[in-house]
């Protein structure tokens, strides 16, 4: 077969159907925006009984609860099939990745299955997010010393 990998790579790109960019983008925008609106509504609701900062945290926790519930009911992945990044990027996507893994790996036991593999997707978020923040903290602290 006289075919170089670059040639074949070009052939592959041509043969591969593209994503439905427009449809996917609209759905991601609408669903993602809608989840944020629900988040805003939850903040406003919790503000009736809590101070503002606490209301924000309570609203996030509520969204996470809803995402875990929808995951357990098997509905979150159905919505995500259409919404793509609209359900991936909000905090609900983070909660879904933990709940889905917890459910999936239960068959390997509550300790080694659920416990260990719960963070199989969300793990890197909990590693690199806080570490990035710590680095920022160190830089900010040094700047305070010298500025």
């Amino acid at each position: 077969m006289n075919l170089t990998q670059t040639e074949y790579s070009n052939m592959t790109d041509k043969a591969s159907p593209p994503s439905k960019f427009l449809r996917n983008s609209i759905l991601a925008f609408v669903v993602g925006g809608a989840i944020c609106v629900i988040g805003q509504a939850l903040i406003n609701l919790w503000s009736m009984v809590l101070p503002e900062d606490d209301a924000k945290i309570a609203a996030s926790c509520s969204l996470i609860f809803l995402a875990a519930l929808f995951t357990a009911l098997g509905l979150y992945c159905k919505l995500a099939n259409y919404a793509g990044a609209g359900t991936l990027v909000p905090i609900t996507g983070f909660a879904n990745s933990i709940a889905a893994a917890a459910i999936e790996f239960k068959s390997e036991g509550l300790i080694l299955g659920t416990g260990v593999k719960m963070f199989i997707i969300a793990g890197p978020v909990l590693v690199y997010g806080p570490v990035a923040a710590v680095l920022y903290g160190i830089i900010a602290w040094l700047l305070r010393l010298f500025v």
Partner: peptide
């Protein structure tokens, strides 16, 4: 389960 993601994880499948 083995090759991709947990079944209830929300993701889109590539057209290929």
């Amino acid at each position: 389960r083995q090759f991709r993601y947990p079944l209830d994880y929300g993701g889109q499948r590539a057209p290929t």
